[in-house]
Design a protein around this nucleic acid. Structure first.
Length: 422
RNA sequence: CUGGAUCGUUAG
């Protein structure tokens, strides 16, 4: 095991986590019980992503000097795993805590992290299992544990359970805090129940929980979402009287909705106010506007913003490129979109599944079915998986070109690959 | 002084 671990560390050093994982897989197949150390090596390598070399160095030293890893070390690592969406490993590590040479008892922190992560994957049943497991281990759930679960349940629309949990936590003296309320306010808004959300904000005030900028931004987005931009603007302007100042998110929320309603020039006005209010323009605001201009066909303006953001020191990201590529595709500039795809890859940005879907869609709509299929094949070699969107644009393209047989083939394929048609 | 939950942006 020791030898294998060193090898594993080497993979980490070399930034070859793929090899690291296959080694790990082989270890399991050969019947080795991975110990805490092995797992931590693996995790650390993953955690740091770009900083793998340093992380491994550090960890090797930890092992050498029998560094007293503890609940916090575990917490850091489990958190890293969760953030990467690797629930399986996070769970393994959670279970491994008690088994290591130095026994660590899992605490509410690690449990909450994993519960939260499971919830974000919609695995509410698993999350509840852990929640119960805590009871068995006499680990007392706290406000974070409850808030995470509540958020997960909200996302699944399980409101009855939400209410039950909310009451339960109150009864146990675990009082909902600002974040708990913000979660609920947001969930109500996303269900278009904005008035209830607003009412809840009143209620939290009564309970002595002061709304913060996140609360107000959430409401602003909710009112915009339900077509009540006027109400949203009122809230926006009333923020100052509540002792806060609108921040970047407040602005980008409104700008986004002006764009969505094709009111790009008003969006632009708000945008130009931001520096005067001392707000730093971030990549998101730029992305919102670039997308807005593309959607009304003002590609030139979108490109201007693309340059401007770089001048202002904001690095374009995948979203920026995707928005522009989509705009180009939909405005008969397919060739330029493809050029941008190359430019993105050359400047070290990894296209995501959305990039591929956009281009496949563009190719299909331009009648370039063959190229679309070719690009579809490239998806897996980029370490990505086609999703419902990807399949849909391709199937649609095939159908519209009369290639029904091939379309059916992809339909079958998507189901086989566990991608649910919607 | 170390680890956990909440708001805004891109594709059918």
């Amino acid at each position: 095991l020791c030898t294998l671990n060193i090898l594993l560390s080497c993979f980490c050093h070399l930034n070859c986590m793929g090899s690291g994982f296959s080694l790990f897989g082989n270890m399991l197949k050969c019947g080795y019980e991975p110990n805490v150390i092995i797992l931590m090596t693996l995790v650390k390598g993953l955690c740091m992503d770009e900083k793998i070399a340093e992380a491994s160095d550090f960890f090797l030293k930890m092992v050498e000097i029998d560094y007293p890893y503890n609940e916090v070390t575990f917490g850091t690592l489990i958190n890293g795993l969760c953030k990467m969406g690797n629930n399986r490993m996070a769970l393994r590590l959670l279970q491994g805590m008690e088994k290591g040479g130095r026994r660590c008892s899992p605490d509410a922190y690690v449990y909450s992290m994993v519960i939260d992560s499971l919830c974000k994957d919609g695995l509410i049943k698993e999350a509840f299992k852990l929640f119960r497991e805590m009871d068995g281990k006499q680990i007392i759930q706290d406000v974070v544990t409850y808030s995470s679960l509540i958020r997960g349940l909200c996302n699944l629309g399980e409101w009855e359970t939400v209410e039950k949990l909310f009451d339960e936590m109150c009864e146990r003296g675990i009082l909902p805090n600002l974040i708990t309320f913000n979660i609920l306010v947001d969930a109500l808004c996303k269900e278009r129940r904005v008035e209830e959300a607003n009412h809840l904000v009143g209620l939290m005030n009564q309970r002595g929980v002061e709304p913060d900028m996140i609360t107000y931004n959430t409401l602003i987005d909710g009112y915009c979402f339900t077509g009540q931009m006027d109400v949203a603007m009122k809230i926006f302007y009333s923020i100052a009287s509540k002792g806060h100042e609108p921040n970047v998110v407040s602005y980008s929320t409104l700008i986004n909705w002006f764009c969505k309603n094709r009111r790009v020039d008003e969006a632009m006005q708000l945008f130009r106010q931001m520096p005067r209010k001392g707000l730093k323009l971030d990549a998101v605001v730029y992305n919102v506007l670039i997308c807005g201009f593309c959607q009304v066909g003002r590609i030139a303006d979108a490109k201007d913003l693309f340059s401007e953001m770089q001048v202002h020191g904001q690095c374009p990201d995948v979203v920026t490129f995707n928005a522009l590529m989509d705009g180009l595709c939909k405005n008969n500039c397919l060739v330029e979109a493809l050029k941008m795809f190359k430019q993105m890859e050359n400047s070290g940005f990894r296209p995501d599944i959305i990039s591929f879907s956009i281009l496949i869609n563009g190719l299909c709509k331009a009648g370039e079915i063959e190229s679309a299929k070719k690009l579809f094949k490239c998806i897996s070699s980029n370490g990505l998986q086609p999703n419902v969107f990807t399949y849909t644009v391709l199937i649609d393209g095939l159908c519209k070109s009369g290639l029904i047989g091939e379309a059916v083939g992809f339909f079958v394929q998507m189901e086989e690959k566990g991608c649910q048609p919607d």
